[in-house]
Amino acid sequence: MKTPKAFYQPLAIGAPAPFRDLPVALERMIHFVPPHVEKMRAKVPELISKVDVVLGNLEDAIPADAKVEARRGFIQMAKDNEFRQTGLWTRVNCLNSPWFLDDLMEIVPEVGDKLDVIMLPKVEGPWDIHYLDQLLAQLEAKSGISKPIMVHAILETAEGVKNVEAIAAASPRMHGMSLGPADLAASRGMKTTRVGGGHPDYAVLSDDSNGAARTAFQQDLWHYTVAKMVDACLSYGLKPFYGPFGDFSDQEACESQFRNAFLMGCLGAWSLHPKQIELAKRVFSPDPAEVAFAIKILEAMPDGTGAVMIDGKMQDDATWKQAKVIVDLARLVASKDSELAEVYGL
């Protein structure tokens, strides 16, 4: 751990200073693109206006014999497009793979000036972030990059979840974290082949004391981990995200999982299929009725102190803070989405 005095100092001579505050950005969905597929790369110009983040995926779901092609495809995709307000990310291969080092050595010099975030899979502890932090600083310095590239960790091992707070505190490059439910399930020895979402066998039975038929109430397999991740991220000013939902045919279950994550504090989720884009956009944008009520609270308590009654409900300093979270997010959404700006009245 660096000392407080050195925490924001660049790790290489000539590298840009890290951000002291995360750049303000709307990131309701991180949309995954397989860059080795030319047909998918061709859709990126149209995609840029529809999503908040375009991510070139180099890791899971990319065949071993297509890894180099995916890396080259991402570089070309980054060079061919202007992303403007839309974030450009890549998920590199994990640290113990034979492709990770080349991912960094080729991508950063070629398109590091356009790249906002590197998503690092299977982060197990702060040592993984320290290694990437130092390497990025050296590559930025060598390539003359003026804006620091941020790091986003995926929690997908039991050890990573155990060390989540240390990971959050590891570097000023930290952007946030995502839940990686499939790999995490395997790491924990969980008995499920689903990618995110619930499981009908993970349930609590109703009481049988009255002799009536018992009802099973399905529980959320990921509640504990999402809550732990949210607490770690927000404690250090980072952004928490739900990860993938693999059943593209079950929009209702996907929306339920995304909404649970949103209510618990997540700012977005991964979209792996085009039909999940609008779903994530809707779920991770605050409800207009909630925004309207939150605005009432802020207007009734301009300095954030005291207590007032609004629509028969008591509001005080604490609810003012809750309202501000909602209105701040609504303003951010409105800055990019003209339709919602009109609905919100912002």
Rank of each mutant, 00 (worst) to 15 (best):
A6L: 12
F7H: 01
Q9H: 11
Q9G: 08
G14Q: 05
L22I: 04
P23W: 11
V33N: 09
P34S: 14
P35Q: 11
A42E: 15
I48N: 10
I48G: 09
G56P: 04
A64M: 11
K67F: 03
G73C: 10
D80W: 09
T86C: 15
G87V: 07
R91T: 05
C94M: 10
N96E: 13
L101G: 08
K114E: 07
L115V: 09
I129R: 02
I129P: 00
Y131R: 13
D133F: 00
L135A: 11
Q138A: 13
E140W: 05
K142Y: 03
S143F: 02
S146E: 15
T157G: 01
G160Q: 05
E165D: 15
A168S: 13
H175A: 13
G176V: 07
S187P: 06
T192S: 15
G197L: 07
D201G: 15
V204I: 15
V204T: 14
D207R: 10
A213Y: 12
A216Y: 11
F217D: 05
Q218Y: 09
L221E: 12
H223G: 10
A232N: 04
Y242E: 06
P244Y: 01
G246A: 02
S249V: 01
S249K: 14
D250I: 03
C254N: 05
G265P: 10
A269K: 03
S271P: 04
D287L: 00
E299Q: 14
P302L: 03
G304K: 01
M309Q: 14
D311C: 03
M314N: 05
D316N: 04
A318L: 12
T319A: 02
W320M: 02
K324R: 14
V327D: 08
A334Y: 06
Y344M: 06
